[in-house]
Design a protein around this nucleic acid. Structure first.
Lengths: 193, 193
DNA sequence: CCCTTAACGCAAAGAATTTGCTTTTATTCG
DNA sequence: CGAATAAAAGCAAATTCTTTGCGTTAAGGG
């Protein structure tokens, strides 16, 4: 959509006033989304609430879509309190179930959409999948058994069907969709080859 | 995002001038995307090219995002010249390969993103998956063998991993990603149970 | 502690969007 | 096959959003 200011740059000023402004704006967006929804949410409105000039927002984020996407990305960080038991056949399904509950909810769905709207496909990092890989990797490592598959394979088998439905459909999901996929995946990769 | 005018409604006027305006606007969008790209494409610009008043566009589509999404949805109709051989183990991988080529291309990726940006998740019909189901169903029916799976299962196994990568990443895809998934899927559903 | 300059504030200029009203013209019905 | 009806388009004024130039504030580095 449009280049956000690169936070890692020589001479950049990530602290102090800049940071306060960023926090105030993010908070204002979050609050106003609650109050008036995403539609009919305008930059001048956010600016007023944050105690900031509209031009400040335009210069940093360019437009409302990018700003909302930026806020949504912060909320993607699901700090899941994982306590891997070490048994893949338990941990992966458990995580999958939790992940589905997190994502297939009104705020979860809205968050994914918000992230996507501000995503133009030219950035390297993919916020949603990047947020997920560490958890999967952790579960695999905790497993004593040597894994014969890739983290990407898990994403294909359990994350992809889930997010595809969330992104492209309105219909409520079967409660055990992700869990079942995880169980099937583990079964397939332990028995046989 | 915002309700497009319901085309099926008592008293609606799908023909005549309305239709001409719609076609002119769609054509203008397509042409201008080529010339100036999606960014920096404005409603007044489109209106001028289409020989229409801006207010006409605003009243019908509400905003540029919705209009672009609407245009992209028309282009989703991939009339794939399928000639099912009747052997699932050939037809499904062949279709998967073709589908990937169609979607994992610069215009294909842009199209998917355009559709998603105008998608607020409250419509019943899902333009992307709806465009795919008939093809899969056709292949399954053409197969003499009685199928032991669902169309949705195919979507989960081959379409989902594909679109997830397209939607969430910038990285180029392995050329045989979808084909391989299709082969594995057929193998799994013919042997064994 | 001072210097440099990134980032903000302010206000004017410019562009996009909304809105009330009029006109055109599909569609329906007699 | 004409009216009659109302959906959709045109037009223009009013509003609101966005951009931009320039002065001011205050991080970060020497």
């Amino acid at each position: 959509m449009s280049e956000l200011r690169d936070p890692i740059r020589s001479g950049a000023r990530p602290g102090g006033r800049s940071l306060r402004v960023q926090e105030a704006v993010h908070a204002a967006v979050t609050a106003l989304i609650e109050e008036v929804g995403r539609e009919g949410l305008t930059v001048p409105q956010v600016a007023a609430r944050a105690g900031v000039t509209p031009s400040t927002i335009y210069r940093r984020w360019n437009d409302m879509t990018t700003l909302i996407s930026d806020v949504a990305q912060r909320n993607l960080r699901v700090d899941c309190p994982l306590k891997p038991s070490g048994r893949l056949s338990e941990d992966l399904p458990a995580w999958a179930e939790m992940y589905q509950e997190e994502m297939d909810s009104t705020p979860g769905r809205a968050m994914i959409r918000d992230v996507l709207r501000g995503w133009d496909g030219t950035q390297k990092a993919c916020p949603l999948l990047d947020a997920v890989r560490p958890s999967i990797a952790l579960i695999c490592e905790a497993s004593g058994e040597p894994v014969t598959f890739d983290v990407e394979a898990v994403i294909d088998a359990v994350v992809a069907p889930l997010v595809t439905r969330i992104v492209f459909t309105d219909a409520p999901l079967p409660a055990t969709l992700a869990r079942d996929a995880a169980v099937a995946f583990v079964a397939q990769h332990s028995s046989g080859k």
